[in-house]
């Protein structure tokens, strides 16, 4: 009896220390994750809060004072939209991005379909070239492209930007779609061929409908790339009436015109679309990122 008693008293504290250990580990883990998220979110939060603060508040105190005394104003947004040309830039960003996304998906799909599903000489070499082209620094294309489009008299239109943005992403797009297209069972394509479908039909009625998700992934990635690019629109559209949001915000930031709070409002306007997209379409974004990573 006493042996059992002592056994019990011995084992009880031992168990609780190991339990305590895992407990502590758990607490440490959750704290670390929480801190990480906090640190990563704070800059976004600071931007968001500042957009609603007045110029005078911001110059005197840090943004966190807004939590102490909350005096929101909307004037920053009004000013950004109407005085600094951000409203116009929203339109420009859309004009720049939407055709780019459409073209990228279309060209990549055709390229990937050909490389993945047709057999011909040079197929592998072309595919490897696409792999290599993905990594090329975009700076490389600037000088020749500028000369080319100047000669054609197309600078100052969106055409050069569409073409360049597409050209820079299509190698990646082909790579991303290639993997998916190549995994479609060839029986399916052969069945369609026997059923009398021509190649364009196989592409349009069999391959594309099966590839909705991966096409969406490419679309969302290219949307973010094109929407967020600075250098290419800066060079080909200038910072005038055709400038998209990135260029507009960058020039506001550099010239300090309109003041800090207007700048934050303009910045927030420029990020809201991609932020909403990445939260709502996260699944496709993740798929695109993972499908595009060159596997080791």
């Amino acid at each position: 009896m006493s042996a059992i008693e002592s056994h019990r008293t011995m084992s009880a504290p031992m168990q609780s220390t190991s339990k305590l250990g895992t407990r502590l580990k758990g607490v440490a883990l959750h704290t670390a994750v929480f801190l990480l998220c906090l640190v990563w979110f704070t800059p976004v939060l600071s931007l968001f809060v500042t957009t609603f603060r007045s110029e005078s508040d911001s110059s005197r105190t840090g943004w966190w004072h807004a939590f102490i005394e909350w005096r929101p104003v909307l004037s920053n947004y009004v000013e950004a939209m109407y005085l600094t040309g951000v409203g116009r830039s929203v339109v420009n960003s859309i004009v720049l991005t939407v055709p780019t996304v459409l073209g990228t998906v279309l060209f990549s799909a055709i390229g990937a379909f050909t490389l993945a599903r047709m057999r011909f000489r040079g197929r592998i070499a072309l595919f490897l070239a696409m792999v290599g082209f993905q990594v090329l620094p975009p700076q490389l294309v600037l000088v020749p492209m500028l000369k080319f489009f100047l000669a054609l008299g197309l600078t100052g239109t969106f055409i050069p930007v569409w073409i360049i943005e597409m050209g820079l992403t299509v190698p990646f797009g082909i790579f991303l779609l290639y993997g998916f297209f190549a995994s479609i069972p060839s029986d399916l394509v052969e069945a369609a061929r026997i059923d009398g479908a021509s190649e364009p039909r196989i592409f349009l009625q069999i391959i594309l409908p099966l590839s909705g998700a991966v096409l969406a992934s490419l679309a969302i990635l290219q949307f973010m790339i094109a929407w967020n690019h600075l250098l290419i629109p800066l060079i080909f559209l200038g910072s005038g009436s055709l400038s998209p949001l990135t260029v507009q915000v960058a020039s506001l930031a550099q010239t300090n015109a309109g003041g800090l709070n207007t700048l934050t409002a303009a910045t927030f306007i420029s990020v809201i679309v991609p932020l909403v997209l990445i939260v709502t379409l996260q699944k496709y974004f993740v798929r695109g990122v993972l499908g595009g990573a060159v596997k080791g």
């Binding site: 069972p185 029986d187 399916l188 052969e190 069945a191 061929r193 026997i194 069999i206």
Partner: peptide
């Protein structure tokens, strides 16, 4: 081409769309 041969084929994997 297969479509002009007036044949039909049933695949092991069925190959249903």
């Amino acid at each position: 081409s297969p479509k002009d041969r007036d044949i039909a084929m049933v695949f092991q994997s069925y190959a249903l769309y």
